[in-house]
Structure formats: C-alpha cells, structure tokens
C-alpha cells in the first residue's frame, strides 16, 4: 500500500522537475519554492479564519500606534502592551490550524526533495561504499550474498563482513553514466538497488533501499521495498552531499541542516510574503 502511495507521490515530483532536470538546480529549487509558497498560501486561505486574522492584525497595529502616541503615560502604555500580547496570542491560535494541516504534506515533500537536492550522483571513476545491512539474528559470515556484474560499475573488493554491525561492504567504482541496477542474489533471492552515475544537473538519487515496513517506507520512499521476509534490512550506496553553490560560494551546513533545506525554507517563506498580496491572503 505504502509503496503505491510513494510511487504516485514520487511521480508528481518527477513530473514537476521533468523540464528542469537539464538546467541549473537553482531553477528547480526556485520552482519548487514558488509551488510550496502557493500551497502554503492556499492552505492559509481556506483553513484559517481570514477575517479573524485581518482583525487581529489591525488590532495589533492600532495598539502599536497607541503605544507610540501615549508613551508618556505609564498606565496607557502598559495597557497597550497587554493588548498587543493578547492579540499576538490570538493570532498564533488562528494560524495553528493551517500549520497543522501543512505539517504532514510538508514532511512528505521534504522527504521527496531530499532525493533531488540532497545528494550528488557518482561521477565515472569515483569510488564509494556499498553497504548491505542485515536483520538481527543474521550473521554476515553465514549468509550467501552474490553481486552480479554490470557495465555501469565495478565491484572492486571482495565482500568485507563486519559482524558487530551486521554489515557487508564493498567498494564500488562508477563506470558508465546512467541509472544502473545492482543485482544481489541473497540465499537464492534476487534483489536490486539503484545506483546513479553522472546524472543530469537535477536528478533523483535514492541512497537507501529498505524493507517492507510502514515507517521505513514512509521515510525512505525512493525505491520499492524488499519483501518483508528478506534477511536484508537495507541496502545503502554512499553518495556525497550536494552543494548549493551561490556565485562560487558553497552554502554551508548550519546546525546539521543541509544547504538545500536552508535555501528551500528561506525561499518559500520569502516567496510566500511576496505572493500573498497577489492572492489576497492574510497571513
């Protein structure tokens, strides 16, 4: 079920970015920020008490004026400040509902956007690590995992089995451009995982493929899940984080927040304020 939802939802993003995938990723970023701003305005427009917000904002403005006019009178100033606080709280309560409505779609959007803006595809010749993570109770030394060769990449090392982490690692070197399938044969079962090499400037990259499980799939919707009875918990290809380069300057990580997310939030909020007048939305 979850997978059907994920693939439909994912397709929407494929569609949105389709025309922009050969352009600078900033164009895709601006586009999605505009769409997000519009969505937020739309949600505000129809889920919040627009009249109420307008009234509250006017009240706040009025009391601010009062504060300025009667700054010599202690008692009036205090009263005005009290009123500003009161209406602020009411304003927050008015915007709670649209926020609540927004939060789940926003999380789903962020998960999708991370595939598009979070990782850099491998370049031909680049080396990375491929990790197979096993379920509890399985020992990497006992399990029979074979990797099928492909023209897209080389497997450069024999399997490195790490018992304590229940992991099997390989070093993989990208060779040809394109999205390739890594094919594993695990205890006779065939499993695949996608590997992206030198994609377009804007492309979807899914580092982790997980097992069938609601939460897992919700968080890692990039690829169809493994069957629930597989001894494999997840397969990961390590990609480097994507840089957002602004006129030669790489936007840095801030408190663990990746550059693309900083840009996305900032752009969406700015655009929301720019566009609210056009659509006559009170926020």
């Amino acid at each position: 079920m979850m997978w059907i939802f994920n693939s439909v939802f994912g397709k929407i993003f494929d569609f949105i970015f389709f025309l922009f995938r050969n352009m600078n990723p900033w164009i895709g970023m601006i586009l999605i920020s505009v769409l997000t701003a519009l969505l937020m305005l739309f949600v505000f427009r129809f889920t919040s008490n627009q009249e109420g917000i307008k009234r509250v904002k006017n009240k706040i403005k009025a009391h601010l004026l009062e504060l300025r006019l009667f700054k010599d009178s202690m008692s009036l100033s205090f009263k005005a400040q009290g009123n500003i606080l009161r209406y602020n709280l009411r304003y927050i309560s008015y915007s709670t509902k649209p926020m609540l409505v927004m939060i789940i779609p926003l999380i789903l959007i962020l998960i999708q956007l991370n595939f598009w803006f979070g990782y850099e595809a491998l370049t031909p010749g680049q080396e990375t690590i491929l990790k197979v993570k096993l379920e509890e109770g399985h020992n990497p030394l006992d399990i029979d995992v074979a990797l099928e060769p492909s023209s897209g990449f080389d497997i450069q090392t024999p399997p490195l089995r790490i018992e304590e982490g229940r992991e099997i690692n390989w070093r993989l070197q990208a060779r040809e451009k394109g999205v390739h399938d890594l094919t594993f044969i695990v205890n006779g079962q065939r499993l695949t995982k996608k590997v992206a090499v030198a994609q377009r400037p804007l492309s979807k990259i899914s580092p982790l493929k997980v097992k069938r499980n609601f939460i897992n799939e919700l968080i890692n919707p990039g690829e169809s899940p493994f069957p629930a009875d597989s001894p494999i918990k997840a397969i990961e290809v390590k990609y480097q984080a994507k840089n957002m380069n602004l006129f030669g300057w790489n936007i840095p990580w801030l408190l663990g927040i990746p550059p693309w997310l900083i840009v996305y939030f900032a752009l969406s909020i700015i655009l929301g304020f720019v566009l609210k007048g056009i659509f006559k939305v009170e926020i």
């Binding site: 690590i129 030394l141 090392t157 024999p158 399997p159 490195l160 089995r161 790490i162 018992e163 690692n169």
Partner: peptide, 11 residues
C-alpha cells in the same frame, strides 16, 4: 579499521 575475517580487505 574493520577487517574481514577471511578476505584481505579492510574498511
């Protein structure tokens, strides 16, 4: 450094 118990390879 993690070494494989059999193969001559390490992470």
């Amino acid at each position: 450094v993690f070494v494989d118990p059999v193969n001559p390879v390490a992470k």
